[in-house]
Design a protein around this nucleic acid. Structure first.
Length: 888
RNA sequence: GGGCGAAUAGCUCAGCGGUUCAGAGCGCCUGCCUUACACGCAGGAUGUCGGGGGUUCGAAUCCCUCUUCGCCCACCA
């Protein structure tokens, strides 16, 4: 019967919730992760699934280790993104936000958020996330908003917030300013237009090169490098700006790159950050020749935009202006030019540099101590290779534009008194002007709202009640691990570190930043809605179960590496997880089916009763505990998952279970009790080790193991500890020999196409007495698993046999009268002999090489000598075989 | 322009403090419905570890270089 995850997952999750196991234990050392809050409007995509599964694995591991685990969940109000969603909905109704007005619009968003805001929260539950849902937060909660405002006012008081008049990134679609981080670079094929500007008072012209001809309407100068001989004769002269037909000066400025273009740069101070700087140096006018929505014209254009271009979209205007220039003979040439264009990270619109007034946070003072802490090792970023990127950004950090000209967000708490022009920031809405005592009616609040990240950068402490000194804040700050994608390293992670340090008494919010990869399709494209190459995690849950989804995500991605999944073949993509869950299920069916009402505990078992197989699997269990614990501690979740898999499937199921079946069926009560105790212990261990990755099925099976009280849950059960007295390297070596003997016999059987039902006789000729005892002790196991009629340890086989030689020179002979063809046997053994001989030759060469013996580490040389000895024995035995068979 | 990463079996990827390290899963081939599991069991095949050079007794593994992909940063008019 195949495992059906659906009923199990639903009921198990409910049990966890009812038992309250996701809330932190009362008295224990805390372990805290704050979730990267998804946008309230988000629906779960596979990137969320990866991000949150990683967190859940770490959380469940630490919970089992006994920590007071707090995984704080929540959502982000996501200013621009959410506003865009709402505006799209309005558009479907044929309305704009301006039709509604600010208040009604914001109300509409709230209604929307209240209704659908916890969609993603519910979806996280479906993939098994064990967040502390009792502490779910939203970045627009009233308490949270208080924290945001407090932070703003404090920074204001500390003079770290200021109003800047400069060229910023403006999105003509979202109608707001953006921070540098929000304007993404995109390599684009464009053109470099060479345009002639006629000289005033004389003949001739100079040629400027530009990628944006439409901005010439806003030009107030042409600049040239003072060192450039081509430009020198013209410095101080004037040029006539085409189309606009005004005179503009030709100025000298160091900022001009002599190597680029023609050496002459058109200067558009209101639409280019560089030009603005040049303009400041030369006291140039700053006409704004575009409207906020990216059309030519506007109120600040100083009459420069001709009538036929007013209201024309900037890209259309570019075409028309180029045409006009061409007609006028002023277009010298157009050459293709690859350059980087910035686009809005929310709507992908080409960002327009635009002169405006915005609020900025001075970042250097915030960044410096946090970077110093990083260099001191106070926190780490894994994988370590992000160091250079992070370091470089922090080092060259620029001031942060935090004002947004949208409506959905935290209103900027800056007030202006119209009477006395006093400007101040306030923790509460003022009734009167603090300076002139003017009435509330004369006070105006800044219409803008704050960048969404200005609230999320407070997430690690605002969620716990800051600025109040709450018990939660005392207990859960600072936290420990932050798990996120590198895309928001600057947006969010770096800023959280800064705000934490600055506002929380120089205590950083976490000690480890774990940056995981991106989920991509088979063409290495990022999964996205617009490309239609996404995988809906909930589809996967429905088809194969949450455990299968989690398995593929965790086992399939090593630390920080991207995950490639095939959206066109979910079956193949998620089969490994599904298969594994099914395997666990069936191991469970078998184990549980074997148990009696009372199962002895491992500690009550007489150790002298343990067989080689028992000792071996107990030692492997210890090994697995050691490995998985270490790998999880080092964030090697993939390795941990795979080791758990190996223990459960390859060691416990493939070998131990098979080895032990007859003992379970036998009438020997002691032997049976021993096996049961060992089985239960090992299966229990496997379930615990795998629980963080595949929590549902492990919980379900664990519930059924003997000795469970009704309220016991694997989710809060202890992490397994190694039982040192079961470490047993001797059993390891010996059982490996037994396994090898079985494998050799099976291999021979396959080679000679012996039907699986046919029982054959075999002889093992052990090399040395200890080996003889090993084989003898596991005679039944070997006979059964190799389908033997009988196994003996001396004498030569009757008739013809097939031979194989162990690494240590022990031999196995399978009696195959009538089946063995001497020629075939000769060929098989000769191949084996030659393979060995070749290896031996190169080994021998190494060992006779003086510099190897002299320079290689002593252990290595000793090991090689050992190896040579055993290979030689093996080869000699083979040679003897060949001879006795009469092979040439 | 600067920085980073990736290139290993048909596919997705481990291995990268040097000498049984050439691996896993999926796929493929050959047998098996062996009373836990055909989402399974057993046995197999497949790779000049991207190209070239170097260091070394020895290199997927370290260094240099080239090629191809990808990412990040940058005042590329």
């Amino acid at each position: 019967m195949a495992y059906d995850p659906r009923p199990v997952e639903a009921s198990i999750y409910k049990r966890w919730l009812e038992a309250g196991v996701f809330q932190p234990r009362p008295d224990a050392e805390p372990y805290v992760i704050v979730i990267p809050p998804p946008n309230v409007t988000d629906v779960l995509h596979v990137g969320h699934a990866l991000n949150n599964t990683i967190q859940d694995v770490l959380i469940r591991f630490e919970r089992m280790r006994g920590r007071a685990v707090e995984w704080l969940p929540g959502t982000d109000h996501a200013g621009i993104a959410t506003q865009n969603v709402m505006e799209k909905r309005l558009k479907a109704e044929g309305k704009t936000r301006f039709d509604l007005g600010r208040e009604a619009f914001v109300q509409r968003v709230w209604d929307f958020v209240n209704k659908t805001g916890n969609t993603i929260i519910e979806q996280l539950k479906q993939i098994g996330c064990s967040c502390d849902w009792t502490r779910t937060r939203f970045t627009f909660d009233p308490e949270y908003s208080r924290a945001v405002r407090e932070v703003f006012v404090r920074l204001w008081e500390q003079k770290l917030i200021y109003r800047g008049h400069r060229v910023i990134h403006w999105c003509p679609n979202c109608l707001t300013a953006l921070s540098d981080e929000e304007a993404e670079h995109h390599e684009t094929n464009g053109n470099l237009y060479h345009i002639k500007y006629p000289l005033v008072g004389g003949s001739g012209s100079i040629t400027v090169a530009t990628t944006r001809p439409e901005t010439l309407l806003g030009d107030t100068a042409v600049a040239v490098n003072p060192e450039d001989p081509r430009g020198r004769p013209y410095i101080g002269k004037k040029a006539r700006l085409p189309i606009v037909d005004v005179e503009i000066p030709i100025v000298a400025d160091e900022a001009v790159d002599k190597e680029f273009g023609t050496g002459f740069v058109k200067v558009t101070p209101a639409h280019d950050a560089n030009d603005f700087e040049i303009g400041k140096r030369h006291k140039l006018a700053t006409p704004l020749i575009m409207t906020e929505d990216g059309k030519m014209g506007g109120t600040g254009d100083e009459g420069r935009v001709p009538h036929d271009l007013r209201g024309v979209d900037r890209f259309e205007a570019r075409k028309r202006i180029v045409k006009q220039l061409e007609k006028a003979g002023l277009l010298e040439k157009v050459e293709p030019h690859r350059h980087s264009v910035r686009r809005c990270y929310r709507c992908d619109t080409v960002v327009e540099p635009r002169l405006s007034d915005q609020w900025f946070v001075k970042m250097k003072p915030l960044a410096e101590p946090v970077l110093a802490k990083y260099r001191d090792g106070a926190y780490q970023i894994v994988p370590e290779r992000w160091r250079a990127t992070y370091d470089n950004w922090m080092e060259n950090i620029r001031d942060w534009n935090i004002s947004r000209q949208i409506w959905w967000g935290h209103r900027i708490p800056v007030f202006t008194c119209k009477k006395c022009e006093h400007v101040w920031a306030d923790r509460t809405d003022p009734d009167q002007c603090p300076r002139c005592a003017g009435p509330a009616s004369t006070i105006e609040q800044d219409p803008d709202v704050l960048d969404t990240w200005f609230s999320s950068w407070l997430w690690p402490f605002a969620t716990f009640g800051w600025p109040n000194e709450t018990p939660d804040l005392r207990r859960f700050y600072p936290g420990h691990t932050l798990v996120t994608a590198p895309e928001i390293l600057f947006f969010w992670v770096a800023r959280m570190l800064m705000s934490g340090y600055h506002f929380m008494d120089r205590r950083l919010p976490f000690t480890t930043v774990y940056l995981h990869g991106t989920v991509r399709d088979m063409k290495h494209r990022k999964m996205s809605k617009s490309l239609g190459n996404g995988i809906d995690p909930l589809d996967v849950v429905k088809l194969f179960g949450a455990d299968a989804l989690r398995w593929t995500l965790i086992a399939g991605s090593s630390l920080g590496a991207d995950v490639m999944l095939d959206p066109n073949d979910l079956e193949t993509t998620f089969a490994p997880g599904r298969n594994f869950a099914n395997k666990l299920w069936n191991i469970g069916q078998f184990v549980l089916g074997q148990l009696e009402k009372k199962v002895a505990t491992l500690s009550s078992i007489d150790r002298r009763q343990l067989t080689l197989a028992d000792r071996w699997i107990l030692a492997r269990a210890n090994n697995a505990i050691f490995a998985v614990s270490g790998q999880l501690s080092e964030f090697r979740l993939d390795e941990a998952a795979k080791r758990g898999f190996e223990f459960a499937w390859n060691e416990l199921a493939d070998w131990y279970l098979e080895a032990v079946k007859p003992r379970l069926a036998s009438g020997d009560a002691t032997s049976k009790a021993t096996v049961q105790a060992v089985l239960v212990h090992c299966f229990d261990t496997a379930l615990r080790l795998l629980h963080p990755v595949v929590p549902f099925i492990t919980e379900e099976l664990w519930q059924k193991l003997p000795g469970r009280k009704s309220d016991d849950l694997l989710a809060t059960a202890g992490w397994p500890a190694m039982l040192e007295h079961f470490n047993d390297s001797e059993a390891d070596v010996q059982f490996e020999r037994v396994k090898k003997s079985i494998e050799l016999i099976r291999s021979i059987r396959a080679e000679y196409k012996v039907s699986p039902k046919t029982k054959v006789r075999a002889i093992i000729v052990p090399r040395g007495n200890d080996r003889a005892a090993t084989f003898e002790g596991e005679r039944d196991t070997i006979e059964r698993l190799a389908q033997l009629e009988s196994l003996s340890f001396n004498g030569a086989p009757q008739g013809v046999g097939a031979h194989a030689v162990f690494g240590d020179g022990s031999e196995v002979v399978v009696a195959l009268e009538g089946l063995v063809d001497v020629k075939q046997e000769c060929r098989r053994l000769t191949e084996e002999y030659e393979r060995l001989d070749k290896q031996l030759t190169s080994l021998a060469a190494r060992l006779t090489n003086e510099s190897f013996v002299a320079r290689a580490p002593r252990e290595v040389v000793a090991k090689e000598r050992e190896k040579e000895k055993s290979w030689r024995e093996q080869r000699d035995v083979l040679a003897g075989k060949l001879k006795s068979l009469g092979c040439s």
